[in-house]
């Protein structure tokens, strides 16, 4: 298997005077000893709460900021030394839209392709395919402010493909989209991996990561706290079944009974999460206590994520 991205012992800290969202980040480690290796054709996810270091990792890999220490190799090029050359074969979907508002859909693609040194003829020959891929063929001459959020995201994805990249970085590609728009993006991303493209995406949607990613890493406060396939992570870190119990007096119920049925449980607000390998005894008990409502489901990535990163807000 060909390794297209490899990172060893990456560190980055913001040394100074800069404050972000009211907090002082003096000497704060934003990336703390991250190592990873991504194979060709893989979809690799970076998961983590806000401020975990996901976007910083992408910026380091692109050579836009310099690491304090550690080595990065992207498509055979050492980063940041040969970042510009490496970026020739990379596409980026940024977190916030930065399409050119003065241009039409087609002009956005044309202008962006030129940044890669492509000729107008080369770009124009790829245009129909890119517009088709983004479901924007009918919007070719529309101005950007007239597009919906989903259309802008799809155009940003098409723009990232203008240079036919081997690796595509996606920073929260579906944040702020409605379910229909998200499903269309997911379908397109699966098509790209089917074509053999390598995808590196950040997200905080667990269903997105579970569906799309072959492997993923969970980041928290700049550290990588777990890395594997979604299924293995669930098997390794969490009991197979989850029963969510909610309703009035649920805390009192939990204090008295939860430990009897569930080896591990968590109280969060008005919900009790019971993690069990065998759910039947708990379900029978709950059916006898009709005042409590419950939801029985298989464990998922979100349970792993919350177990590893905790339930408290990160702000």
């Amino acid at each position: 298997m060909t390794v297209v991205i490899s990172v060893q012992n990456l560190h980055k800290s913001y040394a100074g005077h800069k404050s972000y969202a009211g907090q002082s980040y003096a000497g704060h480690k934003v990336i703390n000893d991250i190592s990873l290796s991504i194979n060709k054709g893989e979809c690799y996810g970076l998961l983590g709460p806000n401020g975990a270091g996901k976007t910083t990792t992408l910026r380091l890999l692109l050579g836009l900021i310099e690491p304090a220490s550690g080595t990065i190799n992207l498509l055979g090029h050492p980063i940041p030394q040969q970042a510009s050359t490496a970026r020739l074969r990379v596409g980026v979907v940024p977190q916030m839209d930065n399409l050119d508002p003065d241009f039409t859909v087609a002009e956005n693609l044309l202008v962006y392709g030129r940044y890669f040194g492509m000729t107008d003829a080369q770009i124009t020959s790829r245009l129909p395919m890119l517009l088709e891929f983004a479901n924007l063929a009918s919007k070719r001459d529309a101005k950007i402010p007239t597009l919906s959020g989903g259309m802008k995201r799809r155009l940003t994805l098409a723009r990232a493909l203008v240079n036919d990249p081997e690796v595509i970085f996606l920073d929260e590609p579906t944040t702020g989209l409605d379910p229909q728009a998200r499903h269309l993006i997911w379908q397109r991303l699966r098509e790209l991996t089917a074509q053999g493209k390598t995808l590196l995406l950040t997200t905080h949607f667990m269903d997105e990561a579970e569906r799309l990613c072959h492997r993923l890493a969970i980041l928290d406060q700049g550290r990588m706290i777990a890395q594997d396939s979604p299924r293995t992570l669930i098997q390794q870190h969490i009991e197979a079944q989850v029963v969510e119990v909610f309703g009035e007096h649920v805390t009192a119920w939990a204090a008295e009974n939860a430990a009897t049925f569930a080896p591990r449980f968590e109280v969060s607000g008005e919900t009790v999460f019971c993690y069990v390998t065998e759910a039947q005894p708990l379900l029978t008990h709950l059916q006898e206590h009709g005042e409590l409502r419950y939801l029985h489901r298989p464990a998922n990535l979100e349970d792993v994520f919350l177990k590893l990163t905790g339930r408290e807000m990160r702000e």
Partner: peptide
Amino acid sequence: EQRTWEAILNTPIT
């Protein structure tokens, strides 16, 4: 405001 530079910096341009 428009983040045009940010978009350009993701290409080979420095």
